[in-house]
Nucleic acid binder design. Structure first.
Length: 694
DNA sequence: GAGCACTGC
């Protein structure tokens, strides 16, 4: 049994204040001041006191770094201050980027509300597959991915006068790439203003990144209008947030098993602490299910008694259906305390109201690119201090809260301050291609905010060269490279779409590529009768050639039966995912047609489709070694068939290609297709001569 | 033989 130490008063912690209304990133907004006029609410926000300072700094500096904690109101108010003071009146637009679609939607509608207009008028938004924009729009909310795409047609983003990049502390891949490109643009467009907005971040580091001009300003064009203006210089502005204090508790001794410790802590809270919901952070879906099961067993024993500590236990992770996810937002039955056991989805992506207690296991599952094996690994690593702070903050949004950390205080101070940015732990082939398409030739010396390991860049360049997207001097090829860059999918998938023209099967390949973009077409129940039934249901779609042809069968069947509600259910098909597949598919087909690749179908023939797959996935080939294991052709790394693959229980074919490799307990190949090695030699001779010499 | 954190174009 473990004990929690006395609450520790962390200085960096007490400053965290939750928001009262408008800076919420999900559509579930709790607003205790609903009765007040909008004008009054806006004035109550902490950032209101900084309004004039903000406008002055933006007048005099090209870059403004805005450090504002949750609840400062920066995401909703700053864009309005800009409009009110005349930015966006010269026919140009203000744009605000967010890492997530849901944040774009809720911010845009909140700001339109506050301004008394409807969406698509002065205030609009643009996300993939959805947009509300008109020629009246002066303020636009977008995902950072959308803004990156816009740069392909408008490299200097000339239609914008102010660009605000929000949630920079999350350091998503797109945010980092956007920042570096915006820095370049700003040099060419001195009148452009950039606002970099972040919760916690090393502001000085960011300031140094953005300050490229050390000399005094106005030495180039001495126009009086810009005399006060320091182009290329960055100012930092801090905005206080607002939030209730959260007491932090640490365990006195390290816990051997954080799943068990989580369960014990929930039980302790339920017995000893006043009412208030509990949020538990664990690393994966399996841990979540185990914890939920243990807590439900406990809850059942309690429910039969007349005690007060009755619980409603709910799981929250990305694999759940929409309906199951929505449950965590509903009020628990009266007299019950709601316990939500979640993965990292609850750290930033969704906000659950009513949380007073947080339990933090101290770990997170992260995708990590391994350049040696050229594969992704999904590894459980200790969280950063910033993450721990973010998780604890989830307890102080309604009233003072408590956070229980399942690690010691000493250990906390050994953690990294920040999680390494995504750009440093990702496969960069897509990002590199995108940069090339935007005219960045020298990737190795490109000015990233946090440079990725050189080997990651080298691996990306090698793959692009193998796909003939770039030539031996590293330049984007015309038309192959240019075309691949146009597609909103991984380069290898884009290459397959383009090649489908040669094999006259673009219809089928579009279905396959679309299906590979979504998480899971099937539900995989983990226990009981359901898991067996699901397995039997999957067999209906099984193709002996492998997973990709199976996906094609699923997509084809869904277009026929998908509208029947029982059909998806009885076949354990993820309806949400399949609907998205069809939307993606039609986007891909439209893009193909725009590039002059006509719609064509193999009319039931399988071989052209298989050849097309082989012609693009040849870099991902594995052969059956006499030892009985698969090995990569590239580096002789041992690979295993993922248990979700349709080929898992089958006799092993001598040659396969795979969509990706993910390392969990072992290196697992996913999205596997059986191929004929002669095709590989024929279709990718530049790559495969040496292979058959084995 | 045994298993997928979370986003985004």
């Amino acid at each position: 049994m473990f004990k929690f130490a006395k609450p520790t008063d962390l200085p960096d912690w007490k400053e965290e204040r939750p928001d009262f209304n408008s800076d919420e990133v999900t559509s579930f907004i709790f607003n205790p001041h609903r009765s007040q006029s909008i004008e009054n609410q806006r004035k109550r926000l902490p950032i209101f006191e900084n309004r004039d300072q903000f406008l002055y700094l933006l007048e005099t500096h090209q870059f403004l770094i805005l450090i504002g904690e949750t609840g400062s109101g920066k995401s909703t108010q700053v864009p309005q201050y800009l409009l009110e003071s005349g930015w966006g009146c010269d026919g140009k637009t203000i744009v605000v980027t967010q890492p997530r679609r849901v944040a774009v939607l809720s911010l845009a509608s909140r700001v339109a509300d506050e301004m008394g207009t409807s969406l698509g008028q002065t205030v609009g938004y643009s996300i993939r597959f959805d947009e509300q924009i008109s020629n009246k729009t002066r303020l636009k909310f977008v995902t950072d991915g959308v803004l990156l795409r816009e740069m392909l047609t408008d490299p200097l983003l000339k239609k914008y006068c102010v660009i605000m990049v929000d949630e920079v502390h999350e350091r998503s891949l797109n945010t980092d790439i956007l920042l570096s490109l915006l820095k370049k643009i700003a040099k060419k467009r001195p009148e452009l203003r950039l606002i970099i907005s972040s919760a916690t971040l090393d502001a000085e580091e960011l300031k140094n990144y953005f300050t490229w001009k050390t000399k005094s300003a106005n030495d180039e064009n001495g126009s009086t209008e810009v005399q006060q203006y320091k182009k290329g210089e960055a100012a930092i502005m801090n905005v206080i947030g607002r939030c209730y204090p959260v007491d932090i508790f640490y365990v006195q001794d390290p816990v051997p098993d954080y799943v068990k410790a989580s369960v014990d802590t929930v039980i302790k809270i339920s017995i000893h602490e006043p009412p208030g919901d509990v949020l538990v952070f664990l690393t994966g879906h399996e841990e979540v299910e185990t914890t939920v099961r243990l807590l439900k067993e406990y809850a059942n024993t309690v429910a039969e008694s007349s005690r007060k500590d009755k619980l409603q236990v709910l799981a929250m992770h990305g694999g759940l259906s929409n309906e199951d996810q929505l449950q965590v937002f509903q009020r628990p039955p009266s007299g019950r305390r709601k316990i939500i056991v979640a993965t990292n989805i609850a750290e930033a992506s969704i906000t659950i109201p009513g949380i007073v207690y947080v339990i933090d296991c101290g770990f997170v599952k992260l995708k990590w690119f391994n350049a040696d094996t050229q594969t992704d690994a999904l590894v459980v690593v200790p969280i950063s201090q910033a993450s721990a702070q973010q998780r604890a903050g989830r307890a102080g949004r309604m009233r003072p809260g408590k956070a229980y950390r399942l690690f010691t205080e000493d250990y906390f101070y050994t953690l990294n301050r920040f999680t390494p940015p995504e750009v440093q732990r990702s496969n960069l082939s897509s990002a590199v291609l995108q940069l090339k398409a935007l005219g960045v030739d020298d990737i190795i010396h490109f000015d990233f905010p946090s440079p990725p390991p050189a080997q990651h860049l080298a691996v990306a360049l090698e793959l692009l060269f193998a796909l003939k997207a770039i030539d031996s001097s590293g330049r984007l090829t015309d038309p192959t490279g240019l075309r691949i860059a146009e597609f909103p999918v991984e380069p290898i998938m884009a290459k397959m779409l383009i090649s489908s023209n040669d094999f006259k099967c673009s219809a089928e390949i579009a279905s396959i590529v679309a299906a590979m973009q979504v998480q899971a077409l099937f539900y995989y129940p983990t226990r009981g009768q359901d898991s067996i039934k699901a397995r039997i249901a999957r067999r209906k779609f099984e193709a002996c050639e492998g997973d990709l042809i199976t996906y094609l069968n699923v997509v084809t069947a869904f277009t026929k039966h998908g509208d029947c509600p029982r059909w998806c259910q009885s076949n354990y098909i993820n309806k949400k995912a399949l609907k998205r597949v069809l939307v993606l598919r039609s986007q891909l087909i439209k893009l193909l047609q725009r590039l002059g690749i006509p719609y064509s179908s193999a009319e039931g023939e399988i071989e052209p489709i298989l050849r097309c797959i082989a012609s693009s996935f040849f870099t991902n080939t594995a052969y059956l070694h006499p030892c009985g294991e698969y090995k990569t052709v590239l580096a002789d790394v041992v690979l295993h068939v993922h248990p979700h693959s349709i080929l898992y229980a089958e006799e092993k074919a001598p040659w396969v290609v795979f969509g990706e490799v993910l390392q969990t307990t072992q290196l697992f190949m996913r999205d596997i297709t059986i191929v004929d090695p002669l095709w590989l030699e024929e279709l990718a001779p530049h790559y495969f001569q040496k292979v058959t010499e084995r």
